[in-house]
Nucleic acid binder design. Structure first.
Length: 160
DNA sequence: GCCAACGTTGGC
DNA sequence: GCCAACGTTGGC
């Protein structure tokens, strides 16, 4: 089993949308390195969801898992879509998307400051300067640390 | 294949 | 809104 992090702008698609939809195609990713990671995902892999560019809400907000391995992203064939890719063909698709399914939402986002200060997350790809990838692999250890931060967050919230 | 120009991302 | 860091594009 492998571990991943995906970024999304919550105004475009949020963890609440995923919770509501239960399952969604993680489509419209248009970066080759991110695409390659999407294609490496296997059913059952665990995925952290990160909200970007949203002020106080920025951070890791919950967890999902891979429901279906990546298949051709339909938006690349849709001429009316801004994600249409004229160089993609049905025989030779360029872009791929897995289906992800909702696992849980943390009570509060785990922000960048908390991640940076956490023991054991120094190598986190998300924290590398200049990082812009929207799909990244995680070490199991990193995944577990972040999930426990999410759970501690929940306990702190419940105790109030 | 080089590289300048341009576009995008995303924290701040 | 700024801007640094990349990725992409296209002329040569």
């Amino acid at each position: 089993m492998r571990y991943w992090m995906v970024k999304t702008e919550p105004t475009v698609y949020s963890i609440d949308n995923l919770k509501r939809d239960r399952i969604t195609a993680w489509d419209r990713v248009r970066n080759y390195q991110a695409r390659n990671y999407l294609r490496e995902m296997k059913k059952g892999d665990r995925v952290l969801v990160y909200h970007s560019s949203c002020g106080d809400g920025t951070g890791v907000v919950g967890e999902a898992s891979v429901h279906t391995v990546a298949y051709a992203d339909p938006s690349q064939f849709d001429k009316r879509s801004e994600y249409f890719d004229p160089k993609a063909t049905q025989d030779q698709p360029r872009w791929f998307c897995p289906d992800l399914t909702f696992t849980r939402k943390f009570v509060a986002p785990i922000g960048l400051e908390v991640l940076r200060e956490a023991r054991g997350l120094k190598g986190l790809m998300l924290l590398r300067p200049g990082n812009r990838l929207s799909v990244m692999p995680l070490e199991e250890r990193e995944f577990n640390i972040i999930v426990s931060l999410g759970e501690n967050c929940a306990e702190a919230q419940d105790a109030r």
